[in-house]
Design a protein around this nucleic acid. Structure first.
Lengths: 104, 104
DNA sequence: TTGTCACATCGCGACTTGACGATATATTGA
DNA sequence: TCAATATATCGTCAAGTCGCGATGTGACAA
């Protein structure tokens, strides 16, 4: 067949998008990170609050948050000693629910 | 698993679902496998056809198909020497499009 | 300043993943 | 039976991921 770049045969984007989509899916593909996103879809929380909810150490939580932020899912704001994380894209709710609805 | 199992606090499934969802997302999180799924959403194809489309060796393709089948995304049927793969769950189209729409 | 809280980063080891070449299996035709 | 085709599996290894403890940084209060 032909080179990947001349094909635009899907209803949902061309082949160049697969690498980027896979990159973000790899970030989503972790039970703790899914839980973090679900929690943050209900409001903004500090690292400590999120770590407590997920029952993991703060530094591990901080690392997960960094990965999620790197993909553009989250933003953070420091307030005094605390750092609040929140969902960056409102569209994310749709995607997360779309995923979790299949595995309840 | 852990003590997490007593929480049922999300609108899209409880905590027990996260591990399973993450497992399947890990399988989705690969550019070639996303391409394979998009292709198979348009019909059924043999291993050789899929490998040609994705520009990968047959054995590598076969391995990707095995992983996708293991997650329940695909089924296969042998016809003579060839093995045809197809999408197992029609709902998958919704999920794949939901994902790719964000990265076009 | 000193200590403490809240968070981030680093380095390490255990583990998993992905691609490859080689080999194995299944089917068909000569 | 033998060879060819189509697919699957195996062993290996480089590369990546995960969680941990230790350390670093920034903010506030005594």
């Amino acid at each position: 067949m032909t080179a990947k770049t001349d094909r635009l045969d899907g209803p949902a984007g061309d082949v160049r998008s697969f690498a980027e989509a896979a990159e973000c899916l790899k970030t989503l593909a972790h039970p703790v990170r899914l839980r973090i996103l679900q929690l943050l879809l209900s409001g903004r929380y500090t690292v400590g609050e999120i770590a407590g909810d997920c029952e993991i150490p703060d530094n591990v939580c901080s690392e997960h948050l960094r990965l999620l932020q790197r993909c553009g899912f989250l933003t953070s704001e420091r307030e005094g000693r605390k750092v609040y994380y929140q969902v960056a894209e409102p569209d994310l709710a749709e995607l997360i629910n779309c995923i979790l609805l299949h595995y309840e």
